[in-house]
Amino acid sequence: MSVTICTWNINSVRLRADIVERLLTEEAPDVLCLQETKSPVDKIPADRFAALGYSHIVAEGNKGYNGVAILSRLPVENAGTRTFCDTGHARHCSVRLENGITIHNFYVPAGGDEPDPDANPKFAHKLEFLDNMAAWGREGQAKSIVVGDLNIAPREDDVWSHKQLLKVVSHTPVEVEALEKVRSDGGWADVVRDDIPEGRLFSWWSYRSKDWSAADKGRRLDHIWATPDTGHVAGSARVLREVRGWEKPSDHAPVFATFAP
């Protein structure tokens, strides 16, 4: 049986519950992983999603910031939460499907504006978080999928201008190197780029742009990675760009991939 997974930074699950419902209705992924839910777990509008068939919910939350949630119409087991950097921030949750695949949902720290760990504690925190993720990956992560807003656009064609963004947080060489270490140490493949190997590909566009689509100054910050034993269905990955243009949108677009182990 195939399983379609979607990852989406929703930028407040309560404020944007309507478009979550629309996505679940129109696209019907089997599992939806949300980041930046900005809600305590008991305030997530779970009843609205359960009414659409997504009755299995695992989440971690903070009031007003961070937060991750996994909504599933398939039975899942809570596979636990990791707290990196000992901050207590709600940046990870995970579930295990009946087929044995574990899905890890991450919201990596953005890192502030200055790409200098000595001058910017937020950037130092981001690099430490990534280092902790890499160490966790080396523990062995068979039959696993990592999704989420990883807040780094690794490739030159994952940003609108490689040259202009080299010193901008999310595309600096030190971040790209750290993210690649996380991916390689855990044995995950970047399934989105496996499926779409060429050309510019974005999942985030700033709210600051008056016409985000025409300007198209995007970045690919949202990722789906998988170990080879998860049965990624070749050609299934896609970014649903048009969602960025829905009413009261998140600044991120949903990313999809399908697996058939």
Rank of each mutant, 00 (worst) to 15 (best):
W212V: 02
N132T: 04
Y207L: 02
R155I: 03
V191D: 03
R48Y: 13
D118W: 01
V147D: 07
A226R: 05
F84T: 00
S161T: 01
R244W: 08
V191F: 07
A134E: 06
D116S: 05
N99E: 11
V76F: 08
V68C: 15
K143Y: 12
S94G: 13
L179Y: 04
S184K: 00
W212N: 05
P249G: 06
S236Q: 10
L221S: 07
K38Q: 14
T7Q: 04
L240W: 10
T7L: 08
H92K: 06
S209H: 11
E21A: 11
T4F: 08
L127A: 01
G235I: 01
S72R: 12
E139T: 15
S206G: 10
A214F: 14
D211C: 04
G112R: 07
V68Y: 12
E98I: 02
N132I: 00
G111V: 03
Y65C: 02
L34Q: 01
E175P: 00
G218H: 08
A260M: 03
K181P: 00
A257V: 10
R238A: 09
D86F: 13
G53V: 03
T87F: 12
D158A: 06
P197L: 03
A50F: 06
S161R: 07
S203C: 04
T37L: 04
A234R: 15
F106Q: 08
P154H: 07
A153V: 11
A153W: 03
D131N: 11
A51D: 15
N78A: 12
V174P: 00
E77M: 14
V20M: 09
R14A: 12
V20R: 10
A51L: 02
T227C: 11
K167Y: 07
E139P: 03
A17R: 15
E180A: 01
G67M: 10
W212S: 07
D194H: 12
T87L: 12
T81S: 13
L201G: 01
L52P: 12
T7V: 09
R193S: 02
N66V: 03
Y107D: 01
I152D: 01
A51Q: 15
A124S: 04
K217A: 09
G111F: 08
D86H: 14
R244A: 13
Y65W: 15
A59W: 13
H89V: 12
R241S: 14
N99W: 09
P261D: 14
V176A: 00
E247K: 15
N99F: 07
I224G: 01
T102P: 02
R138E: 12
P45L: 11
F84R: 05
G245M: 06
V233R: 14
W136L: 09
H125G: 00
E128G: 05
P75T: 04
G100H: 12
A134V: 01
A226M: 09
P173W: 13
D194P: 00
